[in-house]
């Protein structure tokens, strides 16, 4: 089983089971991880599922591209090098144990 480690804005953290093929956003929503809003439900239309991935994910997947890259420019919390939209990152087996940080706010 793949487990993701979410770090929340208040410093607490939460381990949630993840299914390969689902997105980070879907995983967060279905496990009730607070701070992921996903207003547009993964249509790349809102930038409210902004997360910071860990170095391992960033180096293996590369950075955001195209529309995701554009959308990140206007996320509520300013983007950083590890910023991604959760709806665009598909879970893979090797992500087991990865740390995903939830920004202070999405709106």
């Amino acid at each position: 089983m793949t487990t993701l480690h979410f770090v929340l804005p208040d410093g607490s953290s939460r381990d949630v089971p993840a299914t390969p093929g689902h997105s980070l956003m879907e995983t967060a929503i279905s496990n009730g991880v607070p701070g992921i809003v996903a207003e547009c439900a993964g249509s790349l239309a809102c930038a409210t599922c902004h997360v910071f991935v860990d170095e391992a994910i960033a180096s293996r997947l590369g950075g955001p591209e195209g529309a995701e890259d554009e959308m990140l420019d206007f996320a509520a919390v300013e983007r950083r090098p590890l910023s991604r939209l959760g709806c665009q990152v598909k879970i893979e087996d090797w992500m087991d144990g990865a740390t995903i940080t939830v920004p202070e706010t999405q709106v």
Binding site: A47, A67, E70, A76
Partner: peptide
């Protein structure tokens, strides 16, 4: 069109 409009109409700019 949305990709263009949303570069102005977005939460960051509104703030």
């Amino acid at each position: 069109i949305r990709m263009i409009a949303s570069r102005f109409l977005n939460v960051r700019r509104f703030s």
